[in-house]
Design a protein around this nucleic acid. Structure first.
Lengths: 346, 346
DNA sequence: CTGTTAGCGCCTTCAA
DNA sequence: TTGAAGGCGCTAACAG
């Protein structure tokens, strides 16, 4: 492995000069620069991460901008788990994380969190750019040399290092396929989704519609801060009649529906099939209880883990990464629920 | 963060002494040792991985003992992918991997590979202990202080650092559930599996049997070096009659069956449902072609990645890890096949 | 038994 | 514009 010492020797200069050239710190002639860069290329020099990190004393700070962990039925705690795991795995780098939680249904909350993040001038940012307009405004204020990684949702037409998330349209298609299998196309399917600006929601619904053999009904619930049971009740009292064979819940609130269904006797003795999203604790519970049949999942912990990982690769090792990473669409039945902990890698 | 210098100061000794105590290199009095260890505990001292690695010059070598990549329809190339990815992620450590491939159906091949591995005296070993007896014999020859990680298969009653693999019984249960969904219990299911010593095979079959509502038939094929199409043909010509609703293939050879089925007209117009294992290239192909309905997968790349990861945690950071790690049971339909690349984590 | 010293590869400051 | 030197935390060899 080539070192700067070796390069210095070959270039007939001192290591200090090599260092300055490598980092473009100025104070060198363009001839020496050319020589050095030439040798660097010849030797395929790569800086030694260990040595570099040992000598530069400072701690690198990464800002995490996500909805508060309890939102969406506790969904946002899952990426956090992955982030924490990545933090442990990267613990020999001096890495400092700061969390900025926001209310995903509030502009002011998001903006405040964003301002706090900006004020701290982090070396890297990991965020979920929900609230398209607000997130766009924030992005414009982030210095161009600060790497930004998106998880969960992408923001089109914006400078960012990488996006990590799921193809939600395709997950809707898959849901339709599974619903067909579960119901045998005997009866109508009801789609339940909250009314909220959410790209994933819309794509999932579109995917489900496109994949369904029998045209489904769509019911959208209002949300204030988060989803609430009474709202679902009203919807379901109207919608979940005996003609319904299955319900597709397009976000993590399947457990609300499950709770409702568990208190209802279906007229014809058939149980209404239920497909939902995400392995939040309450969904796990209702799947174990046999009320939720299938959950689709998107490896939120892996998203968090990977997000921080690629960010650190960039900050510490100067390594690039794919511009877009799709996480798998996981299918969860009661039989494999126990092992779907999303707790691997690295 | 505490350093050995700090510890030395507090203990009133030199850093050399601290180092010797920390590594039990002898040549120190038990009193100084006690003092030092006490301070280490108080300060929660953790060695700086970067500095340590910078100063010790040597390359650490890990031996990889797996079946040849092309065996089992190319299955063994998958853990390799994960291992390579981990190697890249760990590239700032000076890590040297050596691969020892063996024929999983040959004792002499395994033993030879094992001997070669032993002769190289690696600092850590990652292996799939197929061939129970041979692997047991090998394990007895490995020095006790060499960490060994098993992937795919565990070996009971053996000293090892960790096992990473799948609960195959439960995957069989799940397969039965899915088969029920696919066939609606209309007709009989045929289980196809090679005759070979293989714990996973047996557990999957047991799980499937226990989960099936209608008693399945079992057909076992002979294997010589690997599975071959003629063998399957003979089985299927007898077994895949019009009464069959589905076939469950308990290993990665589902694509052979798919090839057979694609050339057969079922009498009653119903297509025979096919459930198999593992995302080997040929299985992917036949799933895309619509002949294989479901594949169960066990994240082989994640197993390889994780295996090397925990091994390096041990070698470089002295960190322990869970004694047994179960990888998830992935369910793959055509709709989510594209995204099941098992290529994450960092 | 213990202390000192010379690096590992890189970064940073200071002097020339 | 360039070079020299000190230090990051740890290891290992050597001198006492």
């Amino acid at each position: 492995m080539a070192t700067i010492k070796e390069i210095a020797k070959r270039a007939g200069v001192s290591i200090g000069t090599v260092d300055r050239v490598l980092h473009n710190r100025g104070r060198f002639s363009s001839e020496t620069a050319d020589t050095v860069r030439q040798i660097v290329r010849e030797l395929d020099y790569r800086p030694n991460v260990m040595a570099r990190h040992l000598s530069r004393a400072r701690t690198y700070r990464v800002g995490i901008l996500l909805p508060r962990p309890e939102q969406d039925s506790g969904y946002w705690a899952l990426p956090m788990d992955g982030i924490r795991r990545a933090e442990r795995d990267l613990s020999h780098f001096s890495l400092g994380l700061t969390f900025y939680g926001f209310d995903r249904y509030s502009t002011t909350s998001f903006t405040q969190a964003g301002e706090a993040l900006l004020a701290d001038k982090p070396d890297g940012i990991l965020m979920a750019p929900l609230r398209t307009a607000d997130a766009g405004a924030l992005l414009r204020k982030i210095p161009a040399d600060t790497p930004v990684v998106f998880v969960d949702t992408d923001l089109p037409g914006v400078e960012r290092m990488s996006y990590i998330g799921q193809d939600s349209y395709q997950s809707g298609r898959l849901a339709a396929r599974l619903m067909e299998l579960l119901t045998g196309n005997q009866g109508v399917t009801l789609i339940v989704a909250p009314e909220a600006e959410n790209e994933h929601l819309d794509s999932r619904i579109r995917g489900f519609m496109d994949g369904a053999k029998v045209v489904p009904e769509l019911a959208r619930t209002r949300v204030e801060v988060d989803h609430d049971l009474p709202a679902f009740r009203r919807i379901l009292d109207r919608g979940a009649g005996p003609d319904k064979a299955g319900i597709f819940v397009a976000d993590a609130s399947g457990h609300f529906i499950a709770e409702y269904l568990s208190g209802v006797h279906s007229g014809n003795g058939r149980r209404i099939k239920l497909i939902g999203y995400d392995l939040v604790p309450e969904n796990r519970r209702w799947m174990e209880a046999g009320v939720i049949d299938v959950l689709l999942a998107q490896r939120p912990a892996a998203q968090g883990y990977q997000g921080l990982h690629v960010l650190c690769q960039r900050i510490f090792v100067d390594k690039s990464c794919p511009e877009r990473i799709y996480t798998p669409i996981d299918i969860v039945f009661r039989e494999n629920l126990r092992y779907m902990t999303d707790e691997e890698s690295i």
